[in-house]
């Protein structure tokens, strides 16, 4: 008894890459690195109105070691910079980064002595979400786009792709 491979309806064939990526993209575990206003909006994204769990990313982990999606929600100051870098390095591969809001993407309208001008000067970033803060829909859009990106990625090349930029 049990499932046999004699009948064609009992098995599917796919590429390993597609099977793995299918699993990866629908089970993203986000770690919110919430520092500022965007973190309040992130609360809105996980709560019931917009509900991020519809996209398989509701299991918010506050430990970088348990998550594969870093959502940087808020302004990163120079004082915060080494901590963000440390948190990123603690995450296991494969990992992705969303810069939520203009502060994380580029410093936003805080062009001053205290604010890092975009987190991509510190860590590799996959998605940039516009808005100050972005609406929940905006972040969900970025999440869906990230899922599409994950679908296109190779499973073996992950390590090579992520290099910390030399400026940091």
């Amino acid at each position: 008894m049990g499932v046999t491979l004699d009948e064609p309806q009992n098995y599917i064939t796919t590429k390993l890459r597609q099977a793995v990526n299918w699993g990866r993209k629908y089970s993203l575990w986000p770690m919110p690195f919430g520092t500022a206003c965007c973190a309040i909006e992130f609360m809105g994204v996980v709560s019931s109105f917009t509900d991020i769990s519809r996209f398989g990313a509701e299991l918010v982990r506050f430990s970088p070691r348990q998550s594969d999606l870093l959502i940087v929600a808020g302004t990163i100051s120079y004082k915060q910079a080494p901590i963000l870098k440390l948190v990123y390095e603690q995450m296991a591969e494969p990992k992705w980064v969303i810069a939520m809001g203009v502060c994380a993407s580029s410093g936003g309208f805080y062009n001053n002595y205290g604010t890092v001008q975009g987190i991509d000067t510190l860590i590799p970033t996959d998605m940039y979400v516009a808005g100050c803060p972005p609406t929940p829909e905006n972040l969900l859009h970025a999440l869906v786009q990230l899922q599409e990106q994950i679908d296109r990625e190779g499973i073996e090349a992950v390590k090579e792709k992520r290099r910390v930029p030399s400026s940091a």
Binding site: T35, A36, G74, T75, S77, K79, Q80, I83, Y110, N112, Y113, G114, T115
Partner: peptide, 11 residues
């Protein structure tokens, strides 16, 4: 504190 010092006063 100071991890979110966005320099309001200088701005």
């Amino acid at each position: 504190i100071g991890y979110l010092h966005r320099c309001f006063e200088k701005e």
